[in-house]
Amino acid sequence: MAEGCMMALRYGMVFFNLLFWLGGCGILGVGVWLSVTQGNFATLSSSLPSLSAANLLIAVGTIIMVIGCLGCVGAVKESRPLLLTFFILLLLIFFLEILSIMLFFIYQDEIDHYAQRDLKKGLQLFGTEGNVGLTNAWMIVQTDFRCCGVTNHTDWFEVYNATRVPDSCCLEYSDNCGLDNPGTWWTAPCYERVKDWLNENLVALWIFALCTALTQILGLVFSMTMFCQAVKVETFYA
């Protein structure tokens, strides 16, 4: 009976971690693809220049692959140290995610204030040498979201020290259109536009978060059950 339970748990763990590992491979692949094909698209933040979409995906994908590999090998070999390591790492990530969500809602106003201040600081680097990624990022965001500046199109006036905005702020793009009449520019703030987009997709984000949490809980249950079963079997045959 115990051997049958261990076999079922082993197959369940291997299947779960194989999906986990393949998911990590997919995320890593997308991150590498973004890094290669969109290498100049970096971050909007001046204080966190390495916090780009590509780097985040590569880091997350690598972590998921390592954890999935640990769980898979631990299940196949019925290794208690590997199963316990997998459980601890997954539990730590789960608690960090919950803590991050709680802190986000508690300090939402402070985060908004800091993010806007940091983004405005980043505007000063727009178009400067060595900041091609940040420049391209702002151009893409303003074009795609049809917005201009962080909180107002006048944010750019301080950057240029003139009544001027980047050409990506124009209703109809053309060279040096940012020097034309303000009536030809987008006036919506980019920060609010991005927040509105996130709110519009809030249901999808929550579904993704719940699916992720459920997957992690199943991984925790499988690994700890298999670990306890392995201890019982070893004790029985000792």
Rank of each mutant, 00 (worst) to 15 (best):
G74P: 01
S100Y: 02
T184S: 14
R164K: 15
D112R: 10
N161A: 04
L90M: 04
A188P: 05
I140C: 07
V203H: 12
L91Q: 00
W197A: 15
M139K: 12
T163D: 09
F94P: 08
R80L: 09
L82F: 04
R117V: 07
T135A: 06
Q108V: 08
P166M: 02
V203T: 14
Q142Y: 00
E192G: 02
C72H: 08
I111F: 13
C177F: 02
W197V: 08
F208W: 12
V141G: 06
C148N: 01
G133D: 07
C72W: 15
T128R: 06
D155H: 00
W138A: 01
G122R: 00
L125P: 00
L90V: 10
L198T: 07
F94E: 10
G133P: 14
L134K: 08
L123Q: 04
W185N: 00
L125Y: 05
I106N: 14
C169T: 10
T184G: 03
V76E: 03
L210S: 15
T85K: 07
G149C: 10
F126W: 14
M139W: 09
D118T: 11
Q124F: 15
A162F: 14
N136L: 14
G130C: 03
L198V: 09
D109Q: 13
D167F: 02
L84S: 09
L99G: 12
